[in-house]
């Protein structure tokens, strides 16, 4: 398998009311190119799923959207990504407020070695979102409630976050992200380290969060993409092959590669 020459993305990569727009995005790790000319819109208050075989560049693309790739020395991004019409790779843009607007949840739950309370309060504290202790308490409680974790942890807010179960830890990380009140939440295979029950809870949560947030989720599981997303983008070897409404992708895919993937011929 090699990359397809002169490929243009099939389906509907663009939408009317885009929150994030990517145009001709390429990513290089040193000499090696990992993403080729990806153009994609992410609409406001939609959940878009990025799927594709391992190493197809879906996570790399996701990490471009809040410039998490900046932390890797040799990584270089070309093309344009705009958030509400502002170029996020403009040299004048500070990544700090950008990341406050575009939050991220990672593959493996990564609670800080602090208490549950401090985990949630970390973001609001550094960004100066709360004027008082009462306000901070309120943010913590609300975030935990929205993440569906409040009832499980309200009696042990000052216990270490690392003591929670895997699913709880991941919901803690989502709560931590919500606490900063972002506009977009990026989720990089948030359930891959979790058991089915915990996964179901997170999926439920994603569905609820859609009301307020724009969500891009990278997933390995086609069922999960089908369950939580409105649109699905299929990546293959660093190229964006097809973007369509989720129902359509899983019933009548346009591109042969997409069909091959969803019917399980490779993955």
């Amino acid at each position: 398998m090699s990359i397809i020459e002169n490929h243009t993305t099939n389906g509907q990569p663009f939408c009317k009311d885009p929150k994030l727009t990517a145009r001709g995005v390429g990513v290089f790790y040193g000499e090696k190119q990992a993403i080729f000319d990806v153009s994609l819109d992410i609409g406001a208050n939609e959940v878009i799923a990025l799927i594709g075989p391992s190493g197809c560049g879906k996570s790399t693309f996701l990490r471009c959207l809040n410039r998490m790739n900046d932390t890797i020395d040799i990584c270089r991004v070309t093309g344009a990504i705009e958030l509400d019409g502002e170029d996020i790779y403009d040299p004048k843009v500070d990544v700090v407020p950008l990341r406050a607007r575009v939050g991220m949840v990672f593959q493996k739950p990564n609670p800080f070695p602090k208490s549950i309370y401090d985990n949630i309060a970390y973001g609001p504290r550094i960004h100066g979102l709360a004027q008082s202790r009462v306000e901070l308490d309120e943010i913590v409680e609300k975030s935990l409630q929205r993440a569906g974790l409040w009832n499980e942890v309200k009696d042990r807010l000052h216990a270490p976050g690392t003591g929670l179960s895997g699913g709880q830890q991941q919901r803690l990380c989502i709560a931590r992200t919500i606490a900063v009140d972002p506009e977009v939440i990026l989720m990089d295979e948030p359930c891959s380290a979790l058991d089915p029950i915990a996964t179901a809870k997170i999926e439920e949560l994603i569905d609820e969060l859609r009301e307020n947030y724009t969500i891009a989720i990278v997933t390995h599981s086609m069922q999960q993409a089908a369950r939580v997303s409105q649109r699905t983008a299929y990546f293959h070897l660093g190229q964006l092959i097809e973007v369509n409404p989720t129902d359509q992708v899983f019933t009548t895919p346009e591109h042969a590669l997409t069909e091959a993937y969803i019917t399980g011929r490779f993955g």
Binding site: P97, R101, G103, N110, F112, P113, Y122, I126
Partner: peptide, 25 residues
């Protein structure tokens, strides 16, 4: 690295990440 990523993902600056996440850890 995942702890640093978690902190950067929330919009922390490097020094905030170092002082409040890396050093305590």
């Amino acid at each position: 690295q995942s702890l640093r990523d978690g902190s950067y993902g929330l919009g922390a600056t490097r020094s905030e990440t170092v002082r409040q996440v890396v050093i305590p850890a």
